[in-house]
Design a protein around this nucleic acid. Sequence first.
RNA 1: GGAGAAUUGUCCGAGUGGCUGAAGGAGCACGAUUGGAAAUCGUGUAAACGGUCAAAGCCGUUUCGAGGGUUCAAAUCCCUCAUUCUCCGCCA
Length: 429
Amino acid sequence: MLDMKLIRNDFEKAAELLKKRGVDKEEIARLKEIDERRRKLIQKSEKLKSKRNEVSKEIAEKKRNNESADDVIQSMQEVSKEIKQIDKELEKAEKETWDISTGLPNFPHESVPVGETEEDNEEVSRWGDALISRPGDEPKPHWDLGEDLGILDFARGAKVAQSRFLYYLGAGARLERALYNFMLDVQTKEHGYTEVITPYIVNDESMFATGQFPKFKEDVYELENENLTLIPTAEVPLTNFYRDEILNEADLPKYFTAMSPSFRSEAGSAGRDTRGLIRLHQFHKVELVKFAKPEESYDELEKMTRDAETILEKLELPYRRVVLSTGDMGFAAAKTYDIEVWMPAQNTYREISSCSNTEDFQARRGMIRFRREENNRIEYAHTLNGSGLAVGRAFAAILENYQQADGSIKIPDVLVPYMDGMEYITAEK
RNA sequence: GGAGAAUUGUCCGAGUGGCUGAAGGAGCACGAUUGGAAAUCGUGUAAACGGUCAAAGCCGUUUCGAGGGUUCAAAUCCCUCAUUCUCCGCCA
């Protein structure tokens, strides 16, 4: 949710910022207009209510003195009717402002490159020898490697559930578990995050606060007749942890991490990444969430992005960092870094983590606030989220980057202890 | 899933139609007292929205689990829902 005051007081600036994100100026103008109408109605209604309260006191006074108050009561009946009428109009205006304002994306940070698509994203840095393909000239894609080794089973996933679901088997299941245990260990022991196990189903209020609702309902799995949704990311339950709460300034910053399954309907992505582990309806992710003071949130974003990158460096997987353009950023984000891991078989980098500062956008929606020590005033906190990392995509990257000429997979050194000393995954007999 | 009880401010807790944003207590903050502390005394101690304002502040409206209703007027009466507790059923 945007700060309505900025739209009111500096319309041109607000409109310009939102234009970078593809929002029509007309729409902001309409919002401003309805908001003005809304506030006029509030004033009108409150004036009458103030009168009603005053006269109510008079009536009470008279009743206590056993005097008749019939005439006053009668006039108040009229006033009450009028209040009801105005409140009805007000409700309508409120719904209209709500409909527009809840659909507006966050203002982009000034450092974000302006653009319309992912083509306009800017590479920030690279790490590792991406272009040295390891086994030979023809690296195999991870889905072939996984099926040949008998550690991934897409066919049975589709049979038992649907396409874009799968089974991990034997050393594959073990590797998945090794990966997220490793990631959680690094984030908790080296980067100071508190490990959390969250609900995997959340209510509509939570989905609203983090920005998925009302605009992106088609991307998630909702339970029928329940007001409940399977989480599309642990960002939702983690960020909502402090919804409707006021924290102490001394409590900030706060770091949480959680491994969870994530459920996405992937509506509208038919035909894209249909093979392999890149785009699934259900996948594991180690999520990072921070609550920070406004003046520190961009430093925290840099640190969080490094926290994600560290995982890839320890796994010795080549990657690059890009900063998303205004056109490619998620709805709630003010600035986002994507970390893309090298996928040799596809000869390209693929997103494996996305780290965003939403500033106070989610905090406004979820009323996540803190009290300043110096003046006791209440402010919105800034919330950040990032993947640290997407486990399935890391799995895919390991298969492709660590494949050997004989089709086996070398286990990255840091994972060997998590695999009971196993150093290679070879075909199951 | 069935039956019953409950839900008031940071916490405990009073309050069945009007003078209750809400008694009383605890906690917390500040001040007095003290060599310092404890005890004691005094003062203060919610949030959202709207208006005004450079700001501090001030004014108004709303909020007693949530939403709706009755009424001139609702913490208080009615309806729906949620949550918690107890008992029964089921169950990892």
